[in-house]
Amino acid sequence: MPTISRDEVAHLARLARLAVTEEELDLFAGQLEVILTSVARVGEVAAADIPPTSHAVGLTDVFRADVPRPGLTQQQALSGAYATEDGRFRVPRILDES
């Protein structure tokens, strides 16, 4: 039976870039425990020699003619941005040092 600690949930939230609250940690730890216990039933199936399926329809390389196709204009691409500057996305600093 899988057990998932509050610390593990906090770690998962960090990995998933979710600034969860203390109350959420309590709630999610309990709920994820219940869900994981249930889904762990996949382990009951003897499947050592069974190949995995990632996709129901076989994936094949898809090609297209090597001709230019119009994409979004710069204006369209920036149309949903929170902030822009000089025709680019303006984002917060990416390094920790200010």
């Binding site: 994820l32 996949v42 399926t53």
Partner: peptide
């Protein structure tokens, strides 16, 4: 959405991948 993102992050993480995601993919084959 947060629950599922965390669940997926867990199922794909090293140490759990084979038992969860990998095994689920085999069930999919069956």
């Amino acid at each position: 959405v947060k629950r599922r993102i965390m669940l997926g992050t867990y199922a794909l993480s090293a140490g759990y991948y084979d038992a969860y995601y990998g095994q689920a993919q085999k069930v999919r084959t069956l």
